[in-house]
Design a protein around this nucleic acid. Structure first.
Length: 481
RNA sequence: GGCCCUAUGGUCAAGCGGUUAAGACAUCGCCCUUUCACGGCGGUAACCCGAGUUCGAACCUCGGUAGGGUCACCA
């Protein structure tokens, strides 16, 4: 049997991380089993529909690297793949289910429904219309009386199924309500549409959020009543913001594109969320989506919810950044360098090189390099450094010899600068570190910088470096008598 | 409240009746080093509680506790 899975997001906004992870696992499962991965848009809720959300789904799947075999724009013979385009189907199937004895017409109005209160104070339907003879019901329908079609849940049975991650789940039929399948407006409820669509599209494995775990027996009863084969279920845990709260739009930014905008690489985000709730046998953490396909196994899916830890995602993103070639990193980092005050003023490529091992997320870049343009009077105590064996006098001497040597240096490269500073130190009877430490402070006026004297000099260029050196020599002589 | 599910360090997690209870992030320390990073090495830190089954329980059973889910003419 060929595996067919489906990802069925609702276009109600941007792609949420939890949703994307469900889609990812669905994708991985299909690919792992050489199956078919289908995209279905569940847009029956016109009220919550958000402009541009469908485009966001396409865009997200694309940059996340999840290609689908069938979908709205890729017909595989099981379409349409947009639920609103399938609306005609459901009424027909609901009526068929009535004929099969798995559903019945219900004429109860809102007020009556509200008046029913069960032991728990809830408005659970009392099956009032369940025993109306079919002929009578049909006559009332024909006469134009408003109605809904409800599921006729068999009595006195226990509906069970085996979930691939949670094992056997059983629910007694007395705990299952005769729910509405077809609404009074003739449109299906979400769950009914879901069952019909999954069957019609030949879905073999249903992967979805754990919120459906305990209601699945109810849907299985519909499959049974139709005489349809039940799919295999794989329920997925929730991604949490903390121990109590779900990670959701309501609690802040948790959508894929926001993270991309923040400077996370799509592949790092996908990699991280894959690990939230799934552990490969190999225990490998950094992996491509193709490696995930290879290693994906339902066995490694977790049964308990996972808390989203941005610190770990930052780390993983940093690993991806460090694995890039300097050129690749330059390409992705340049937009962020340009966002800084320092962007375009110095050697951007050198800045990029310095940033590669120093940021986990690209949006960290501007803050790390803004200081380059803010060169003015600074705290001269920075020159006093015990470990470096530098004090005011050493600094003065170091800057002097470095200035003389550097002003005569034409080959303004790392190697040459390093050699230049080292030899000038030697000539002045100092250690290389003493000179380089002093020069670094003199060039930047910062207690710490991303890169040392040599790197800073390269980034600033000779002209600016010499100007700052001259300024610092003068400043130090003035301030530290 | 009924029903369903879950429970290993701060976080993600391995574990499938016998382990010194992995690994990763975070954290702390050391080394490397021209500051900061990177890299390397090391440390702190966990089986929710209580009964049972068993020679032996993080793993099996029951109860408790805590947390999550679900009980719509929403999806």
């Amino acid at each position: 049997m060929t595996v067919r899975t489906r990802f069925a997001p609702s276009p109600t906004g941007f792609m949420h991380i939890g949703n994307l992870r469900t889609g990812l696992y669905t994708y991985l499962y299909a690919r792992k089993h050489n199956g078919t991965f289908i995209l279905r848009i569940e847009d029956t809720d016109q009220e919550r529909k958000v402009e541009g959300a469908v485009e966001a789904i396409y865009r997200t799947l694309k940059i996340a690297g999840m290609s689908y075999d069938e979908g709205p724009d890729k017909d595989g013979g099981y379409g349409p793949y947009v639920q609103t385009e399938r609306m005609g189907l459901y009424k027909e199937y609901a009526e068929k289910l009535v004929e099969l004895g798995g559903a019945y017409y219900c004429f109860c109005d809102k007020e009556r429904l509200q008046s029913i209160v069960d032991d728990n104070g809830l408005h659970t339907y009392d099956k009032h219309c369940r025993n109306i003879p079919l002929e009578e019901a049909k006559a009332r329908v024909a006469a134009g009386e408003p109605y809904v079609i409800r599921q006729k849940v068999p009595e006195g049975v226990v509906s069970s199924y085996t979930d691939l991650v949670f094992g056997e789940i059983s629910v007694a039929s007395e705990d299952i309500e005769d729910g509405v399948l077809l609404k009074s407006d003739g449109l299906p409820t979400y769950n009914f549409a879901n069952v019909v669509d999954d069957h019609l599209m030949g879905i073999t494995h249903v992967m979805r959020g754990i919120e459906y775990l305990s209601s699945t027996p109810k849907y299985n009863l519909i499959y049974d009543a139709f005489g349809w084969e039940r799919p295999t279920y794989i329920h997925l845990t929730t991604i949490m913001k903390d121990a109590q709260r779900k990670l959701s739009k309501r609690y802040g930014d948790a959508n894929f594109e926001d993270f991309v905008a923040k400077g996370y690489l799509p592949e790092a985000i996908v990699n991280y969320i894959a690990l939230l709730g799934w552990c490969p046998k190999s225990n490998q953490e950094k992996m491509t989506i193709d490696e995930m396909v290879e290693q994906f196994d339902v066995d490694g899916l977790s049964k308990s919810p996972a808390i989203f830890d941005e610190a770990k995602m930052r780390w993983l993103n940093g690993e991806y950044l460090k694995a890039m070639t300097p050129e690749e990193f330059y390409t992705v980092s340049l937009p962020y360098i340009m966002k800084s005050k320092a962007g375009g003023k110095f050697n951007d490529y050198e800045i990029s090189r310095l940033m590669q091992t120093r940021v986990d997320v690209l949006s960290d870049i501007p803050d790390k390099i803004d200081f380059l343009v803010d060169f003015d009077e600074y705290d001269i105590n920075m020159y006093v450094h015990q470990k470096m064996k530098v004090d005011f006098n050493v600094a003065k001497q170091a800057l002097k010899v470095a200035f003389d040597a550097m002003s005569n240096l034409d080959d303004w490269t790392e190697d040459a600068l390093k050699e230049c500073m080292k030899s000038s130190a030697e000539a002045g009877g100092m250690k290389g570190g003493q000179v380089m430490f002093s020069v670094r402070v003199a060039l930047t006026g910062q207690p710490s910088t991303p890169g040392g004297a040599v790197e800073m000099a390269v980034v600033l260029g000779k002209e600016e470096s010499m100007r700052r050196l001259a300024f610092s020599i003068d400043y130090l002589n003035r301030e530290a008598q």
